[in-house]
Nucleic acid binder design. Structure first.
Lengths: 331, 331
DNA sequence: TTGAAAGCGCTAACAG
DNA sequence: CTGTTAGCGCTTTCAA
């Protein structure tokens, strides 16, 4: 398994150039030599060395993906789509876990640069200037997944968070709810936090419903615990609410759990709608109604865009992916 | 960012050999030249080309990880540990999603071989002869994660499934339960299916409790749906049970959900214990008692073992990781 | 302490 | 149709 092109050439009585041509499906050899060479390759079990190829072709057929968090199920869904699309293009994917840590991120970027990867997918986090500048210098294409940059011209794929939040709230309103609260994620999160709050507020005002500050709970993050604390606070400061829009499924499940503890019946006493439609949404009791993002497709799309950029050398258009309410039994 | 060692050498008025020595922390240069070269490197932002290095050093500082499934949360946990340990060693990890598909797996193995990765972690699936033979030919070390081979001498890291299942059942017995059922995963799964059933049976008989065929539900897999169907079947064929040991948390959550639907109160009417202690275990209502595997640590351990094999050229001992009952409120 | 030169495995002109 | 040769960017003898 450690035969080189030389071994093949020698054994087949041809030059290495000929072997190279045949291996790369080029032209310039007779059917006969092709057969002979292919036989030898088969016999030796020769596998071209991608490292050597990468050195000369300046293409490693490898892309890098940066994730701020590894917990949570968003990651696997994204990764699944990314990996699928990459594999279809004959490329591999290197995963990097940045922990939202600037220093770590830069080290990863440097590592990816040394490895001469062909492109980068940057996910779920704001693209800092430092990152952008570095990647720009690397001269490899990049696409943003589930995030976007308001300042740099980098193509992204994500859903429209404001719009999705609007839809969720609107859905609650259509079901007859008027006193609708929101347990938001981090409101300082310019990508996933603020827009969802805005969507909620827009939907309320567009429907002539009052927006009460007491009805909006700002959490630190999008986690389960934020949901349980959020619902508790909500019940204290706004006991009259009949429905809540949670900024993530984890928050929703947390709220569900707290409601159960408090003896509040869902959906009879209180309706809850989540956001993300993770697999846990269908596992909760009652099953959670949620606004779905097509996570795997988003990963796939981002990867395809990346490959298009690699091939054309041009940038591509960003994609807003469709969201969709998945009705289950929590509303 | 595309400067080469030559550029550095020229600008610093030294030979490329000297630059190489300095970059690699070797000896054989004056403090003065070192300073000069380092300055130039800094100025140019020179990054050594890992591809060229890989070609000559025969080490790519990249490992490959094969996962049969990408859904589920086991993956992220494992990956998180693997990625952490690999990163500490200055290596990257390429993820491969085999879908338990033999053909796909072989293609991945081939790809990894062409890329000349330094080692392989093979997870959660039985190591087929074909895979083993190929990897052996690749001459790279491999370790098994959350699986083991009864026929090939490949080091693995996993918990003792039989023992863990025994512990879970024993725990139920200690809590005073006698009529204990099990909703198993796939009983033909020689790694994660059968051993857990055996552990359950052993614990029952060791405690003088009868093992009733009706008390064992064999599912197709370890998924949520298997749990809901499992509990339903169980209630039909063995209504008297007071506790159930589920072969996975997803099954347990499914059972929990069905119980809720059926008006069975957990833990009052029925106790349920899960297996894996995934993050969903603490999100259920009531929170699920579960036997925990240290997933991230297992990934980390497997990776460390892999690196040890790479360094020493020798095989290493397999590791049985400790399991542990996490008490919550479903028992 | 330094440099020249060979070569890792491969591709791509350039000849023939 | 086929072979020779010059690198890709780097490490590593071998001399100086």
């Amino acid at each position: 398994m450690e035969y080189t092109i030389k071994d093949v050439a020698k054994k087949a009585n041809v030059s290495i150039a000929t072997v190279s041509r045949i291996v790369n499906n080029q032209t310039g050899f007779s059917e006969k030599t092709k057969r002979k060479v292919l036989d030898v390759i088969e016999e030796l079990g020769y596998q071209p060395n991608a490292v050597a190829r990468g050195l000369i072709n300046k293409r490693t057929h490898t892309i890098g993906v940066l994730f701020p968090k590894f917990s949570g199920m968003l990651v696997t869904e994204f990764l699944s789509g990314i990996e699928k699309a990459a594999n279809e293009q004959g490329s591999s994917v290197i995963v990097c876990h940045t922990e939202s840590n600037g220093e770590k991120t830069m080290k990863y970027l440097q590592l990816l640069n040394e490895k001469r990867i062909d492109g980068i997918i940057f996910t779920s986090e704001v693209l800092k200037d430092e990152y952008y500048q570095y990647i720009k210098k690397m001269k490899v294409p990049m696409v943003l997944l589930s995030t976007e940059s308001y300042v740099y011209p980098v193509p992204y794929v994500k859903v429209n968070d404001r719009h999705a939040a609007y839809t969720a709230t609107q859905y609650l309103i259509q079901k007859g709810h008027k006193k609708i609260a929101m347990i938001s994620g981090n409101k300082d999160d310019i990508i996933a936090g603020k827009p969802r709050i805005d969507g909620y507020i827009n939907a309320m005002t567009d429907n002539g419903l009052p927006v009460n500050d007491k009805y909006i709970i700002n959490s630190k993050s999008f986690a389960f615990q934020d949901g349980v604390e959020g619902l508790e606070a909500l019940m204290r400061q706004a006991p009259g609410v009949t429905a809540v829009f949670a900024a993530s499924d984890e928050i929703a499940i947390g709220a569900l759990s707290k409601a159960y503890q408090l003896g509040i019946k869902v959906p009879d006493d209180l309706s809850i709608i989540g956001y993300d439609n993770l697999s846990i949404a269908e596992m909760s009791a009652p099953p959670l109604t949620s606004v779905a993002q097509p996570l795997a497709e988003m990963g796939e799309m981002a990867t395809k865009m990346l490959f298009e950029m690699m091939e054309t050398g041009q940038s591509v258009e960003s994609r807003i992916m469709p969201h969709q309410i998945i009705e289950r039994n929590s509303v």
